Amino acid sequence: MQILNHQLLFPDPSTAAVHGMLAIGGDLSVERLVLAYNSGIFPWYNDGDPICWWSPDPRMIFDLQIESSMKVSKSLRQSRRNRGYEIRENTCFETIMRNCMENPRSDQMGTWISEELVQAYTNLHELGYAKSIEVFKDEVLIGGLYGIDLPQHGIFCGESMFSIKTDASKLALWHLVEKLKLQNYRCIDAQLYNDHLASLGAIEIDREVFLSYLR
Protein backbone atom coordinates (compact mmCIF):
# COMPACT_ATOMS: atom_id res chain seq x y z
CA MET A 1 0.00 0.00 0.00
CA GLN A 2 1.46 3.32 -1.09
CA ILE A 3 1.35 6.68 0.70
CA LEU A 4 0.54 9.42 -1.79
CA ASN A 5 2.09 12.89 -1.87
CA HIS A 6 1.57 15.93 -4.07
CA GLN A 7 2.43 14.03 -7.25
CA LEU A 8 -0.57 13.23 -9.42
CA LEU A 9 -0.24 9.47 -9.72
CA PHE A 10 -1.52 6.20 -8.31
CA PRO A 11 0.04 2.75 -8.06
CA ASP A 12 -1.25 0.11 -10.47
CA PRO A 13 -4.78 -0.74 -9.18
CA SER A 14 -4.25 -4.43 -9.98
CA THR A 15 -1.65 -4.51 -7.20
CA ALA A 16 -4.19 -3.73 -4.48
CA ALA A 17 -4.89 -6.43 -1.91
CA VAL A 18 -8.08 -8.47 -2.32
CA HIS A 19 -9.94 -6.22 0.12
CA GLY A 20 -9.09 -3.37 -2.24
CA MET A 21 -7.15 -0.73 -0.33
CA LEU A 22 -4.52 0.63 -2.69
CA ALA A 23 -3.15 3.88 -1.27
CA ILE A 24 -3.51 6.50 1.47
CA GLY A 25 -3.18 10.26 1.30
CA GLY A 26 -3.15 12.73 -1.55
CA ASP A 27 -6.06 15.11 -2.02
CA LEU A 28 -9.53 15.39 -3.55
CA SER A 29 -8.64 17.75 -6.37
CA VAL A 30 -10.62 17.48 -9.59
CA GLU A 31 -7.50 16.26 -11.40
CA ARG A 32 -6.78 13.48 -8.90
CA LEU A 33 -10.39 12.31 -8.74
CA VAL A 34 -10.70 12.21 -12.53
CA LEU A 35 -7.47 10.20 -12.74
CA ALA A 36 -8.67 7.86 -10.01
CA TYR A 37 -12.01 7.01 -11.61
CA ASN A 38 -10.47 6.58 -15.04
CA SER A 39 -8.02 4.14 -13.43
CA GLY A 40 -10.66 2.08 -11.61
CA ILE A 41 -9.94 3.65 -8.22
CA PHE A 42 -12.26 5.47 -5.81
CA PRO A 43 -11.93 7.22 -2.41
CA TRP A 44 -13.67 5.77 0.65
CA TYR A 45 -12.86 6.75 4.21
CA ASN A 46 -14.41 8.06 7.42
CA ASP A 47 -14.52 11.77 8.16
CA GLY A 48 -11.39 12.80 10.00
CA ASP A 49 -9.31 9.87 8.70
CA PRO A 50 -6.71 10.06 5.93
CA ILE A 51 -8.08 9.68 2.39
CA CYS A 52 -8.08 5.99 1.44
CA TRP A 53 -8.14 4.86 -2.20
CA TRP A 54 -9.65 1.52 -3.23
CA SER A 55 -9.74 -0.93 -6.12
CA PRO A 56 -11.49 -4.04 -4.76
CA ASP A 57 -11.49 -7.56 -6.13
CA PRO A 58 -14.11 -8.62 -7.08
CA ARG A 59 -15.87 -5.51 -8.33
CA MET A 60 -19.67 -5.16 -8.25
CA ILE A 61 -21.41 -3.85 -11.37
CA PHE A 62 -24.72 -3.66 -13.16
CA ASP A 63 -23.99 -5.23 -16.54
CA LEU A 64 -25.69 -3.06 -19.17
CA GLN A 65 -24.78 -5.39 -22.03
CA ILE A 66 -27.27 -8.05 -20.95
CA GLU A 67 -31.05 -7.95 -21.23
CA SER A 68 -31.79 -8.20 -17.49
CA SER A 69 -29.36 -5.52 -16.30
CA MET A 70 -31.60 -4.73 -13.32
CA LYS A 71 -34.23 -6.78 -11.54
CA VAL A 72 -37.46 -4.80 -11.87
CA SER A 73 -40.25 -6.11 -9.66
CA LYS A 74 -43.96 -5.88 -10.39
CA SER A 75 -44.37 -3.47 -7.47
CA LEU A 76 -41.62 -1.21 -8.85
CA ARG A 77 -43.37 -1.10 -12.23
CA GLN A 78 -46.59 -0.16 -10.43
CA SER A 79 -44.75 2.59 -8.55
CA ARG A 80 -43.55 4.13 -11.80
CA ARG A 81 -47.08 4.04 -13.22
CA ASN A 82 -49.12 5.07 -10.21
CA ARG A 83 -47.18 7.15 -7.69
CA GLY A 84 -46.89 10.34 -9.72
CA TYR A 85 -43.14 10.61 -9.29
CA GLU A 86 -41.16 12.87 -11.62
CA ILE A 87 -37.56 12.10 -12.58
CA ARG A 88 -35.10 14.87 -13.37
CA GLU A 89 -31.39 15.00 -14.08
CA ASN A 90 -28.69 17.33 -12.75
CA THR A 91 -30.99 19.96 -11.27
CA CYS A 92 -29.86 19.75 -7.61
CA PHE A 93 -26.64 17.75 -7.42
CA GLU A 94 -25.36 19.04 -4.10
CA THR A 95 -28.78 18.52 -2.50
CA ILE A 96 -28.72 14.90 -3.65
CA MET A 97 -25.32 14.41 -2.01
CA ARG A 98 -26.47 16.00 1.23
CA ASN A 99 -29.55 13.78 1.31
CA CYS A 100 -27.35 10.72 0.77
CA MET A 101 -25.26 11.95 3.71
CA GLU A 102 -28.26 12.56 5.97
CA ASN A 103 -30.43 9.58 4.94
CA PRO A 104 -28.17 6.49 4.73
CA ARG A 105 -29.85 3.22 3.81
CA SER A 106 -30.81 0.89 6.64
CA ASP A 107 -28.13 -1.63 5.57
CA GLN A 108 -25.35 0.95 5.97
CA MET A 109 -23.44 1.73 9.15
CA GLY A 110 -23.92 5.49 9.06
CA THR A 111 -22.47 7.52 6.22
CA TRP A 112 -19.00 8.04 4.76
CA ILE A 113 -19.92 11.28 2.98
CA SER A 114 -18.25 14.32 4.55
CA GLU A 115 -18.33 18.05 3.84
CA GLU A 116 -14.95 17.62 2.15
CA LEU A 117 -16.44 15.07 -0.23
CA VAL A 118 -19.53 17.18 -0.91
CA GLN A 119 -17.32 20.05 -2.01
CA ALA A 120 -15.03 17.83 -4.08
CA TYR A 121 -17.85 16.14 -5.98
CA THR A 122 -19.75 19.38 -6.44
CA ASN A 123 -16.60 20.69 -8.13
CA LEU A 124 -16.67 17.62 -10.39
CA HIS A 125 -20.35 18.23 -11.15
CA GLU A 126 -19.72 21.84 -12.14
CA LEU A 127 -17.18 20.58 -14.69
CA GLY A 128 -19.53 17.90 -16.05
CA TYR A 129 -17.89 14.82 -14.55
CA ALA A 130 -20.40 14.10 -11.77
CA LYS A 131 -24.10 13.60 -12.50
CA SER A 132 -27.29 13.12 -10.51
CA ILE A 133 -30.69 11.54 -11.04
CA GLU A 134 -33.44 13.08 -8.92
CA VAL A 135 -36.96 11.90 -8.05
CA PHE A 136 -39.63 14.42 -7.08
CA LYS A 137 -43.19 14.15 -5.82
CA ASP A 138 -45.25 17.36 -5.95
CA GLU A 139 -42.02 19.40 -6.32
CA VAL A 140 -40.47 17.78 -3.22
CA LEU A 141 -37.23 15.82 -3.62
CA ILE A 142 -37.85 12.29 -2.35
CA GLY A 143 -34.96 10.25 -3.71
CA GLY A 144 -32.08 10.02 -6.12
CA LEU A 145 -28.51 9.03 -6.78
CA TYR A 146 -25.22 10.50 -7.95
CA GLY A 147 -22.00 9.28 -9.50
CA ILE A 148 -19.16 9.90 -11.90
CA ASP A 149 -19.80 9.61 -15.63
CA LEU A 150 -17.07 8.08 -17.83
CA PRO A 151 -18.69 8.19 -21.29
CA GLN A 152 -15.40 7.48 -23.06
CA HIS A 153 -15.35 4.09 -21.33
CA GLY A 154 -19.10 3.48 -21.28
CA ILE A 155 -19.09 3.34 -17.49
CA PHE A 156 -21.08 5.24 -14.87
CA CYS A 157 -19.52 5.01 -11.39
CA GLY A 158 -22.41 4.99 -8.92
CA GLU A 159 -21.53 6.56 -5.57
CA SER A 160 -24.62 6.68 -3.37
CA MET A 161 -28.39 6.90 -3.41
CA PHE A 162 -31.18 7.76 -0.99
CA SER A 163 -34.93 7.43 -0.69
CA ILE A 164 -37.48 8.91 1.70
CA LYS A 165 -40.53 7.59 -0.16
CA THR A 166 -41.33 4.10 -1.44
CA ASP A 167 -39.18 3.01 -4.40
CA ALA A 168 -37.78 6.49 -5.12
CA SER A 169 -34.11 5.47 -5.29
CA LYS A 170 -34.94 2.29 -7.20
CA LEU A 171 -36.78 4.36 -9.80
CA ALA A 172 -33.76 6.66 -10.11
CA LEU A 173 -31.55 3.64 -10.71
CA TRP A 174 -34.00 2.13 -13.21
CA HIS A 175 -34.10 5.44 -15.10
CA LEU A 176 -30.29 5.50 -15.19
CA VAL A 177 -30.08 1.89 -16.38
CA GLU A 178 -32.52 2.52 -19.22
CA LYS A 179 -30.80 5.76 -20.22
CA LEU A 180 -27.32 4.23 -20.29
CA LYS A 181 -28.43 1.11 -22.15
CA LEU A 182 -29.79 3.34 -24.93
CA GLN A 183 -26.35 4.97 -25.09
CA ASN A 184 -24.67 1.55 -25.25
CA TYR A 185 -22.81 1.90 -21.96
CA ARG A 186 -21.02 -1.18 -20.69
CA CYS A 187 -21.84 -1.07 -16.98
CA ILE A 188 -22.69 0.86 -13.84
CA ASP A 189 -19.88 0.46 -11.33
CA ALA A 190 -21.39 -0.38 -7.93
CA GLN A 191 -17.94 -0.85 -6.35
CA LEU A 192 -18.46 -3.20 -3.38
CA TYR A 193 -20.90 -6.03 -2.75
CA ASN A 194 -23.94 -5.52 -0.58
CA ASP A 195 -27.21 -7.41 -0.36
CA HIS A 196 -29.34 -4.47 -1.47
CA LEU A 197 -27.45 -4.05 -4.76
CA ALA A 198 -27.46 -7.81 -5.34
CA SER A 199 -31.24 -7.87 -4.90
CA LEU A 200 -31.48 -5.27 -7.69
CA GLY A 201 -29.40 -7.33 -10.10
CA ALA A 202 -25.81 -6.22 -9.52
CA ILE A 203 -23.18 -8.91 -10.02
CA GLU A 204 -19.54 -9.38 -9.07
CA ILE A 205 -16.77 -9.60 -11.67
CA ASP A 206 -13.00 -10.02 -11.37
CA ARG A 207 -11.09 -6.79 -10.86
CA GLU A 208 -8.96 -7.46 -13.94
CA VAL A 209 -12.08 -7.71 -16.08
CA PHE A 210 -13.34 -4.38 -14.77
CA LEU A 211 -9.95 -2.73 -15.27
CA SER A 212 -9.88 -4.01 -18.85
CA TYR A 213 -13.00 -1.90 -19.53
CA LEU A 214 -10.93 1.21 -18.72
CA ARG A 215 -7.97 0.45 -21.02
Rank of each mutant, 00 (worst) to 15 (best):
W53P: 06
L211D: 02
C100G: 04
F210E: 00
D49W: 05
K137C: 11
A16P: 02
A23N: 06
L150S: 11
L28A: 15
L150C: 12
S160Y: 11
G158Y: 01
R32C: 04
D107L: 05
H6M: 07
D47A: 12
E178S: 13
I3D: 12
L64V: 01
R88M: 03
E134R: 01
T95Y: 01
G48R: 06
D138W: 06
F210D: 01
F210N: 00
S55W: 07
L64Q: 00
L176V: 10
L176D: 02
V72W: 08
R77L: 10
L192A: 15
I87K: 01
F42N: 01
M21A: 11
P151A: 06
W174D: 14
F162A: 10
Q152R: 11
L180Y: 00
H125V: 07
E94N: 11
K131P: 01
L127Q: 15
I87V: 14
I148T: 14
D107G: 05
S163H: 14
V118K: 02
S68K: 15
P104A: 05
F93N: 03
N90D: 14
R80P: 04
A202M: 03
L33Q: 06
D27Q: 11
S14V: 04
P13R: 08
M70H: 02
D47P: 13
D206C: 12
H153V: 10
A16S: 08
V135H: 00
A198Q: 13
G201A: 09
M101K: 12
T122P: 08
E208A: 12
W174G: 00
D27M: 11
Q7I: 10
A130I: 10
V135P: 00
D138A: 11
L200K: 04
L176N: 04
L124S: 07
P13M: 03
K165A: 15
N38G: 06
F156H: 00
L8C: 12
N184P: 12
I66R: 03
V72L: 07
S212P: 11
I164M: 01
N103V: 13
G158E: 02
S39R: 14
P11A: 07
L150V: 12
C92I: 13
A190L: 05
R83D: 10
Q191R: 10
L117W: 06
H125F: 08
N38I: 06
A36H: 08
A120L: 04
A172P: 03
Y213P: 04
F10A: 14
Y129G: 08
